[in-house]
Structures are given as structure tokens and as C-alpha cells.
Design a protein around this nucleic acid. Structure first.
Length: 408
RNA sequence: GGGAGGAUAGCGAAGUGGUCAAACGCGGCAGACUGUAAAUCUGUUCCUUCGGGUUCUAUGGUUCAAAUCCAUAUCCUCCCA
């Protein structure tokens, strides 16, 4: 199977700028880049899904450059709905450092920063050297700009595409980079860069975009409400990641395996058969979790996550000793126990519930259990009897949120 | 600079003097069913010492009573210059 066929089979190609690219991809030897802006100090699982392409292409003999936008992060890529809030330069710098380190650790390729070649361009040069190549009509026709004409868009964000085009031009001229890869929402920005290169240098550059990874409801992969799934294991534990992956909906799991792992066609087809025969065994889910967590955090972390999950979600849970809990479940969220405290106060103080009202609601709704025993008594007071071996407490909220209580 | 319109809970959006802690939809959370899945159904979704308390951009005002009326400010959108 050629590279292009492989990418196609995995569902990773939404669009390419020219059919010539197919042959170039299959031949190898291209320098290409994929970028992101430092809007947070850690990447999340969404970044992983798109940046993974760098490893795929590298395997076939291409040269990846990872761009973290220290300059573009200060401006903000227009979102379809609303203007981004400005973040401070210090914040961007802080975020940049975090992302750079992560990108190097996880993907292992060179990281470049567009701040380096953008910071010294003055306004006049910017307008003459780049602005002169952009027709406003062309810019207005871009989807992202169009969708913002009603809700409003500032000149800063409007100009974003010029900055990104300039990046591509710079990398083309200075690093021999002829291809930019990104998620499909970047299509407009990529074509701007291709146009700029064509107009200024009379040279052909290429673009390729991947479809956004979404679930059956069109929701972005990795977007759990509230907290993102960070790649930094101190922000999102391997266990939390494992739980997320193992709980993905069945109908999407094969698609995810293709897009997010390096498993071969044969291996995935085999998993598909197993999955269809016995979906409740979640073999495909487990394979996905294994591949991703091992790649991100390493084998040990993965095994730990499996172990914790097995302890908590099988019959084993009733046989756990306090030592088992302390030694094995260290990725499970913790809280402090005060003997003599009312159960409602405990839930609020430990931030398991956000208010007493909610805590009472949970209790009366059968949602709370201690050491696997349902608690419904609002007046319950925590005593030594509630601790396993007098040391720890295993508290569960809902069906799958575990917390471990310890005494100081 | 002139004119018009707007700002309501996480989001979208009703409400234009009391019956408003504020309809409805989405999202969230929980329960049932299951397989730690999806779909579906049910409940819930400001805080509370369960008496009540604090909310509808902000500040002042009118009124027995304000999300609702008035004034000023801030922000946003559109149109004209």
C-alpha cells in the first residue's frame, strides 16, 4: 500500500491542493509542516490526533517541522463564531515553552517558532511585502471571514491569514518546506500560503487537510465538557485517559483506530471482527487505549491505567485491601477525610459536589457509594467504620467517578 | 460624528411593571435499561442554616413593587458620514 492509499484508507485525507501531491507523497523526501498556536500550556488529545500525521509521513521518508505560533498566537486565528480574547505576551510565551517541550518529547521533531521571523517585520514592510499580495475580496471570500461578517471581526484577526501565509512562504524559502498539513478548518489559511508562494516566487507549494475527528454527534474528539484531555500526564492522568478511551462509543471505534494508531490494516480488520462479534469485551477500545497511552506516556503508565481500571470496574473491588488501594490507585482523584464529618459536608469540602444542594441530590438519587455500598442517608456521619482497615475510603459518584479518601 | 438595534442562567433564546429564581431548546449531572457503549425513558441543573438569601451588563433613579420604566456609563451589531 502506498502512503497516499494508506492515508486514504485511514480516512485522513479531506482535501489536497493538487493531484500532483499524491505522487510526491508516495515518493518521499518532502519537507512539510504542521502548526498550532500556543493558546494553552499543554497540548490536548485533539492536537495529538492531528500532529500524529508528522510521525506517519516521517515513516515514509518525509521531514516534519512542527510550528508553534509564538507570533500568530498573539493575534488569534478567527473562530467561526466570535473574536478570541487577547492573551498577554507573557502568557503566550509561557504556553509556547510548554508546547515546544511537549511537541519535542511526544513527536520528536524540530519545533520552529514563527515569532523568530515575524518579530522584526515593520508595518510598512508588512504591507508592501505581503499585504500587497492579498486582495481584500479574496480575503473576504474565505469561509471563516464570511461567517464573521455579521458578528464582527477585527482587523487583527482578519490579518491572521496573512501571517500564516507568510509562515509558509518563509519555511518554503528557508527550509525547503513545500507542504503544509492541518485540520480541515485550516484550508483557507493554507491556500492563502500557497497563493502567496505562487505570486511571490512563482513556485508551487502544496496543502493537505485532514477531517476533524468527531463522534457520531459531530462533537470534536477529546472534547469532554469542562475539562480537556491534556497530553501532560500531570494534568490528565493515564487512568483518566484510559477511562475516556475505553468509554468511547462503539460505532466510532474502528474509525478512531484507523486515524489515531499505527496498527496495520490487517490488525485493525481483525479487531473489527472481534468487536462486531463481542462488543461488550471492548477489544477494539482496549487496543486504542493501549496504542495511544503507550505512545504518549509509555508502557508502564499504560499498564498502571489498566490495573487501576481492573481494580475498580470488576469484582476485584470488593477484595481490595487498604494497601492495594494506596499502592495501586494513585492516579485516582484524592480527598481528605475528617472523622465525624457529615456526608454532605464531606462531598462539598472535597469538591466532589459543587454545593450542598447538589450533594443532597446525589445522595437521594442513589448516586453516592462508599466502599461500594450505596449511601442515601443525608444525616450520615463519617466514622472509622467507613474506612477500609481504618485507613482509606473508596467513594464513588455516579457510575464511574471514583475518589479515594485518606486521613491526614 | 449622526441614526437604529442589542446585552437575560454554561450556550441559544422567551419574558416589556406584581402570579419571575425567570418559559423553551441545547449542553451538563444523576437514575433506569445495558456492556464502564450508543439510543431511549425519568429526574435534576444560583445559593441556603429550607425561614429565606442573592440574580437578568454596571451605577443611580421612579414605584408599595423593576429583568421589565427613566438617566448615565460600558461593550457589541447594523446603517449613514
Amino acid at each position: 500500500m502506498t502512503l497516499y492509499e494508506d492515508l486514504q484508507w485511514r480516512g485522513l485525507i479531506q482535501d489536497i491542493s493538487s493531484p500532483e501531491l499524491i505522487e510526491k507523497l508516495n515518493k518521499g523526501g518532502l519537507t512539510f509542516y504542521i502548526g498550532t498556536d500556543p493558546t494553552a500550556d499543554s497540548m490536548h488529545i485533539g492536537h495529538y490526533s492531528s500532529f500524529l500525521i508528522s510521525k506517519r509521513l516521517a515513516k515514509y521518508g518525509h521531514h516534519p517541522l512542527l510550528l508553534v505560533g509564538g507570533a500568530t498566537g498573539l493575534i488569534g486565528d478567527p473562530k467561526p463564531d466570535a473574536e478570541r480574547p487577547m492573551i498577554t505576551k507573557e502568557e503566550v510565551e509561557h504556553n509556547f515553552k510548554g508546547l515546544k517541550k511537549q511537541a519535542e518529547e511526544i513527536f520528536g521533531f524540530e519545533v520552529v517558532n514563527n515569532w523568530d521571523w515575524t518579530k522584526d517585520i515593520n508595518v510598512i514592510d508588512f504591507l508592501r511585502d505581503y499585504g500587497k499580495y492579498f486582495n481584500v475580496g479574496y480575503m473576504l471570500a474565505k469561509d471563516k471571514v464570511k461567517s464573521r461578517m455579521e458578528s464582527g471581526i477585527t482587523f487583527a484577526e482578519f490579518s491572521y491569514m496573512i501571517l500564516q501565509a507568510l509562515d509558509f512562504l518563509y519555511l518554503y524559502e528557508n527550509r525547503g518546506c513545500t507542504l503544509q498539513v492541518a485540520g480541515s478548518d485550516q484550508w483557507g489559511n493554507i491556500t492563502s500560503g500557497i497563493e502567496l508562494i505562487r505570486k511571490k516566487l512563482d513556485k508551487e507549494a502544496y496543502g493537505m487537510v485532514m477531517p476533524l475527528v468527531t463522534d457520531s454527534n459531530g462533537k470534536k474528539f477529546g472534547k469532554t465538557e469542562g475539562n480537556a484531555l491534556w497530553l501532560d500526564k500531570n494534568k490528565t492522568s493515564s487512568y483518566a485517559l484510559y477511562q475516556y478511551l475505553i468509554n468511547l462509543e462503539d460505532s466510532m471505534i474502528i474509525k478512531y483506530l484507523k486515524m489515531l494508531t499505527f496498527l496495520s490494516k490487517e490488525e485493525i480488520e481483525d479487531l473489527e471482527k472481534k468487536h462486531n462479534a463481542h462488543p461488550e469485551l471492548r477489544e477494539a477500545h482496549k487496543a486504542l487505549a493501549r496504542e495511544i497511552i503507550t505512545d504518549l506516556h509509555g508502557k508502564e503508565e499504560y499498564e498502571k491505567a489498566v490495573k487501576i481500571s481492573e481494580c475498580l470496574f470488576t469484582e476485584k473491588i470488593n477484595e481490595l485491601s487498604s494497601d492495594d488501594i494506596i499502592n495501586n490507585l494513585n492516579d485516582v482523584p484524592k480527598f481528605n477525610i475528617n472523622i465525624g464529618e457529615n456526608i454532605v459536608d464531606l462531598l462539598v469540602n472535597s469538591q466532589i459536589c459543587s454545593s450542598k444542594r447538589e450533594a443532597r441530590e446525589m445522595l437521594s438519587g442513589n448516586a453516592i457509594s462508599i466502599n461500594n455500598q450505596k449511601i442515601t442517608d443525608l444525616e450520615k456521619v463519617i466514622s472509622k467504620e467507613d474506612l477500609i482497615d481504618g485507613k482509606v475510603m473508596l467513594l464513588k459518584k455516579g457510575k464511574k467517578n471514583y475518589y479515594i479518601g485518606t486521613i491526614d
